[in-house]
């Protein structure tokens, strides 16, 4: 029995997206700036939101995005088909983000507490916004590696094996981090009256 109602064309859409990005990389490796522009725009949105959530500063997120895509420009010719393009690019973004976050960890933590304490969730916000903001507040309290596994899995739709490749760790470590992330998130949400409805 299928408990999640998967769409039947999800896999082929993903493959088509990967084929397109592979072709963009091939063109980038020969110095095609139009291809670079296309790839940059494809990745900016998904990276911007995810990285801003991690760093709490759009300026930091943009620094990571620009560094990441600049490295992609330099190394496009080194991409091997063993990975999906998105896994390769996310691996680069992950390493750049980790450096930036660790450099500014104290500041980021202070920012997260300060901002979130000062801006309680608006009670009249639409339900979807309320849920997302409540969730993001608690995500920010998870250890970085656990939060990243959740983000890579739920926001960026990577498989367990791809997350392991991105984070350069064993698959079992990914499963364990996810296990602990889910447990902590469940506890945090259960203690938060604002999260009464869902998730």
């Amino acid at each position: 029995m299928d408990f999640i109602g998967k769409t039947s064309d999800g896999g082929s859409a993903s493959r088509a997206g990967n084929d397109l990005e592979r072709e963009l990389l091939r063109r980038i490796s020969s110095g095609d700036r139009d291809a670079f522009r296309d790839l940059y725009l494809r990745y900016h949105r998904r990276l911007a939101r995810f990285l801003t959530r991690l760093t709490h500063r759009y300026e930091d997120a943009e620094e990571v995005i620009n560094d990441t895509l600049w490295i992609v420009w330099q190394r496009a010719g080194e991409f091997r088909d063993a990975s999906r393009v998105s896994t390769w690019i996310m691996g680069i973004a992950y390493r750049r983000a980790l450096k930036l976050i660790r450099r500014a960890q104290t500041h980021a933590r202070a920012m997260s507490l300060e901002v979130l304490d000062a801006e309680p969730v608006a009670r009249d916000a639409i339900e979807a916004t309320l849920e997302r903001e409540v969730l993001e507040r608690h995500l920010a309290r998870l250890p970085l590696e656990q939060r990243l596994v959740l983000e890579f899995t739920y926001y960026l739709d990577h498989s367990c094996e791809e997350v392991a490749e991105i984070m350069e760790c064993p698959v079992n470590t990914v499963k364990t981090r996810m296990f602990h992330a889910r447990r902590k998130l469940r506890i945090l949400l259960s203690e938060d009256p604002a999260a009464g409805r869902s998730p």
Partner: peptide, 8 residues
């Protein structure tokens, strides 16, 4: 539900 909220 967590995934939906994260992707909203």
């Amino acid at each position: 539900a967590v995934r939906s909220a994260l992707r909203a």
